[in-house]
Write a protein that binds this DNA or RNA. Structure first.
Lengths: 185, 185
DNA sequence: AATTTTATTGTACACTTGTTCATTAAATAT
DNA sequence: ATATTTAATGAACAAGTGTACAATAAAATT
């Protein structure tokens, strides 16, 4: 059973309007009313699908996260030679992913956005890292794998935050090199 | 010139009401109206001091950050013996600080809160670490100190996030030991 | 092509928000 | 103690929020 044409039409219009407005103002200052006016969708229809503007954004977020997961599957080319044995390829993929969706991540890392978006990203990276970590620490049953992966995942995100602060002036390639250097110290 | 008694009276009432409501619901679902009703303060008065509920919370936040800065100055007793040469005492202080203000940090780490609070905490820890890092990397002028400190600061916060997720079941002491173990691997 | 199902619309409602301003009351200064 | 300054109040405003429901229109099904 495929989704009703009217529904996807409405959702496309709302997503388009949101993307348009996000280039002008922050997520929290976009009202349901103006969003619906721009999308030419009835306000009641919006509430039938989403409870608040954030929910609409989150739906978009999931498609981006999907891409991150997919990019993890992709074969590695240009960075493999950089990698030391301590670097998880998954972690190093993140910077290219952020670069690709820069406009989007400018929102995700903006101050006014709820912490939940950061957590969604964190979760994703933590999961990617966890598999690698649990292999590496197979012999040490005494240490909490969740803690180790949380530590490593968030360290990477620390670099991403600083990258955002410096207005993404470095290239993703630069960030990869930086990460390798930090890990090798 | 000291602050007007009426102002501090109003602010105390508002802060008290906020703390009371935060035990029941999330920050974002507290309306200005209900806050003022509980505090017995006119809604117009609220807006004279704060633009939104978040601003009131941020005022409280700053007093907590002050405590974190102060605790950094305190002489070290019970953890010094644990420290390897690679561990910055500042970083290891953070877990005791979070434990002390657990109620508060349950809010700071909750999903619905704006990312700006996380950044305030991040900034603070990054600054504390930066001094230590710049000493350590004095010879390596090619590496961005902000990046290294962002990496390390956020790694610690990753542990704090995971700690929060596990409902703070470990003691601050446990977290310190864990950090030392991770760093020594 | 006709029928059934279901999404969208328009309208209405009570409520919250953010702002303004004259009035009142409380604190500070004389 | 009185005068002056300044904060708090109450009322009113336009606009947004969230919800409900009957009427309509557009899909899906037969």
């Amino acid at each position: 059973m495929k989704t009703d044409l009217r529904i996807s039409k409405t959702k496309d219009a709302l997503r388009g309007a949101l993307m348009h407005l996000l280039k002008q103002k922050g997520l929290n200052s976009i009202s349901v009313t103006e969003l619906c006016q721009l999308a030419k969708v009835n306000r009641g229809t919006f509430y039938a699908h989403y409870g608040q503007v954030e929910n609409l954004f989150e739906e978009y977020f999931k498609t981006i996260m999907k891409d991150l997961a997919d990019s993890y599957q992709e074969p590695y080319k240009h960075v493999r030679n950089l990698l030391s044995k301590d670097v998880n390829p998954a972690t190093i993929r993140i910077f290219h992913h952020i670069e690709k969706y820069e406009t989007f991540y400018r929102i995700v890392f903006s101050k006014t956005v709820p912490l939940s978006y950061y957590y969604l990203l964190f979760d994703h990276i933590q999961t990617l890292i966890r598999d690698d970590v649990s292999e590496h620490y197979l012999d040490r049953l005494d240490i909490d794998i969740s803690m180790v992966s949380a530590y490593q995942a968030n360290a990477i995100l620390g670099l991403a935050i600083e990258w955002h602060r410096q207005d993404f002036k470095q290239s993703a390639e630069d960030m990869n090199r930086l990460l390798v250097r930090i890990l090798s110290i």
